[in-house]
Design a protein around this nucleic acid. Structure first.
Lengths: 250, 250
DNA sequence: TCCTGTGAAAATCTTCACAGCT
DNA sequence: AGCTGTGAAGATTTTCACAGGA
């Protein structure tokens, strides 16, 4: 939600002769494309060649009007009366998301959470490769985790030269996160995924996304609190349906 | 973002004599309250008694108008000319989020990620206590992780009786997630945090939030892709400022 | 007939700008 | 003078509902 993209995005759009006619997608749409992509992969593995907006929307957990509007921003890849070609749509979304090239990820902070992220299958299986693990703790440097040797954070510039780092992941304690972010920026990294519970300040051309696990619990806590206060009111609120899903993403 | 809250929220608001005059907060505001709370705790530890909207906004990474509007929904807890009383505001936000009561969390799936979540400090330090670890794999049952013994998923109903589970966390592979969700719902859990990359279907009175780590990377990948296509255009886009932060949350 | 693509309406969220309290 | 609280304007997102192609 909170998104302060300033500068950068400015000119482009319908600029004549723009190098790649890059679609100017709404942020909300971008955040949903990965979900559509996952649903499409599932459907494709299930043997479907085409899928209606209704069917894909159900698989992705959104309503069909939203899905059609989202996809319409990519261009017309559906066939009226039939639906979308699964393989073609996968290709289009992967192109837009830049997943046609494998992106190198560098993970800083090999503590509790970092350790788990280093071994998380979901990254590799969806086009991301963790190419370096870094930590400031000398006791951790040299440790082998899921096939990678942990290196000292001071080697970040060297790592950045060896590999073209597309994304830096920060899984350090909050106190260290800003310093790590600064080093990543200096090393030329322009996309950061921050798991530390703090606000990072970075130059305007750097994108930061934040995942704070405790915040997610607190939001659920609010809804628990609200529901508890509602059940004190008349009317048994059981209800049926597909449920209240809220996906994370800005 | 995608939020299909239906039913439940319906009547309340200004209803005369409602049991708890529960504030009808915008979803976007709720998602930011935890961030304000974290910033307030930091400021409080730093010795501040009061803080201006400008100062708190900076600490939370939002602009001050948004912050004031958000807080105004809670009521008037600021003093014009002075700012907000840090301790009072903490108390108010914690009350609204339902954090004045410690909430029990049950974690299902003690694999790579679940293991890390079980030991994540950020939960305990912010009012959540993991009271049970469950897994379907007999090889994992009995294992001791961060002071808790892993129990078999079939014991979920028993666990739910022993402890009042406020929130269930699913950290299983995608294939198992729906079955686990069904069991949580049957056991009476009405809030679920889902780390499995799949859509869950649950009754309308159950809230689900989803965190998909790969999706976060894919969104960053999009922005990398976009930036790469923009640098092919004229104009060195360095710029300065506080950066492009996008926090996760619906 | 079925289903996409899309204007237009509705809902939600953000930002502005200033009245009014301390 | 300084800072909150808030109407009103603006931007974004969602939903509706239907024209029109397959």
């Amino acid at each position: 939600m909170s998104q302060q993209r300033h500068g950068s995005t400015s000119g482009n759009g319908a600029r004549a002769g723009a190098v790649s006619a890059f679609p100017d997608l709404p942020e909300a749409t971008i955040a949903r494309l990965p979900e559509y992509l996952r649903a499409l992969h599932n459907l494709g593995e299930g043997g479907a060649d085409t899928i209606s907006s209704e069917g894909l929307a159900a698989a992705a957990g959104v309503n069909s009007a939203k899905l059609r509007k989202d996809l319409s921003h990519l261009g017309s890849y559906g066939t009226r009366g039939v639906g979308y070609d699964v393989a073609l749509l996968i290709e289009q979304i992967e192109y837009v998301l830049g997943l046609d090239q494998r992106r190198a990820v560098c993970l800083v902070g090999v503590g509790n959470l970092g350790h788990a992220l280093a071994g998380y299958d979901g990254f590799a299986s969806r086009g991301f490769k963790i190419v370096a693990l870094l930590d400031a703790d000398p006791a951790k440097v040299g440790e082998r985790i899921h096939g990678l040797i942990v290196r000292h954070i001071d080697e970040l510039p060297a790592v950045a030269v060896e590999e073209t780092i597309a994304i830096g992941v920060i899984a350090t304690p909050a106190g260290a996160a800003q310093a790590v972010a600064d080093e990543l920026v200096t090393a030329g990294v322009t996309s950061i995924l921050n798991f530390a519970p703090c606000v990072l300040s970075v130059p305007a051309n750097v994108d930061v996304r934040k995942v704070d696990l405790a915040i997610e619990l607190q939001i659920l806590s609010f809804h628990e609190h609200r529901k508890a206060s509602l059940t004190a009111l008349p009317g048994g609120r059981s209800a049926t349906g597909a449920g209240n899903q809220e996906a994370v993403g800005s």
